[in-house]
Design a protein around this nucleic acid. Structure first.
Lengths: 153, 153
DNA sequence: TTGTATCCCATAAATTCCCATGTTATCCCA
DNA sequence: TGGGATAACATGGGAATTTATGGGATACAA
């Protein structure tokens, strides 16, 4: 599970350290790295381990072959995804088109969201997170009912 | 279940002993430690075992993927949480931003609340607990009716 | 060649691990 | 039911390891 938020440097070669917590999560799937694609919800990147993409593939298989949504998801996620391997220091090299899409320069912010994570321009994320906190507070009552449904600690 | 209230020292390295009762509770989920995040409700921290976050994750997955509130909750909870592993002595290192958020220095107070717990600035908690007692007294009748409706105790 | 992608090495800072110690709680046995 | 032995806990300090990060050197391709 991807947790927490970390801001790391993006160097002149396009390299960035993946937070060590995140590296520990993606140790499965036989690929030592992460998978990243441009979000279709905004100008940031989404990513996860290879296992996440395999899950997506399995759920797509349950959808109708000519379902518009299915095809859109396939194109938006699979076609746009890049496999990024870790170097000896736990970094990946972010292809320029991905960095450009998310407006990344100097630093980038990894945001853990449970099963997947996002990579944001650090400044944009800071201005975005305020709204998120407000919305979360407004929706807190829905989480309380989840707590009741959800078992032990 | 997290019970009782304990005040422990927060040392210069940001380390603090997790009460041994609490450590016994979080032995599940394959992670030997706790998860802590800043409360939505005030300047203190909330925490629990990794299993609590996994429940949140499962429950959020049952909600509509494009629900604004769902996404806000996901961002606010997972992105703000930190996994804190126990050291050999049963302590965790509290990241500076969490300690700052809760105004912790010198000591901190762990408050067991059943499925989760809170971490407070000890002084603040002492002044807070007075209000809590008053509220509990005012709501005593509601607890009695619960007892009649429910099972034991 | 020129830009790009890999790989290797170096280093400062942060984090984790390990050991020591005083204190408190628990156990055991006469 | 007194202790006294034993174990568990909270806590401090230092050593060892891991991280994050920068800078070459090398190989490849446009």
């Amino acid at each position: 599970m991807f947790l927490s938020t970390t801001t790391n440097n993006l160097d002149a070669k396009g390299r960035i350290s993946v937070p060590s917590d995140f590296r520990a999560v993606v140790g499965d799937g036989g690929f030592d790295g992460i998978v990243v694609w441009p979000s279709f919800d905004g100008d940031y990147l989404e990513g996860g381990g290879i296992a996440l993409l395999e899950n997506y593939m399995r759920s797509l298989e349950t959808m109708d072959h000519y379902d518009e949504g299915r095809m859109a998801l396939q194109r938006a996620i699979f076609a746009e995804s890049r496999k990024l391997a870790f170097d000896g220091g736990g970094r990946v090299t972010l292809p320029r088109e991905l960095a450009d899409y998310a407006g990344l320069n100097g630093t980038a912010t990894f945001v853990g969201l449970g099963p997947r994570f996002e990579i944001w321009n650090s400044k944009k994320y800071e201005s975005h997170i305020g709204d998120v906190r407000r919305l979360a507070r407004e929706n807190r009552n829905r989480l309380v009912s989840l707590k009741r449904a959800g078992g032990q600690a």
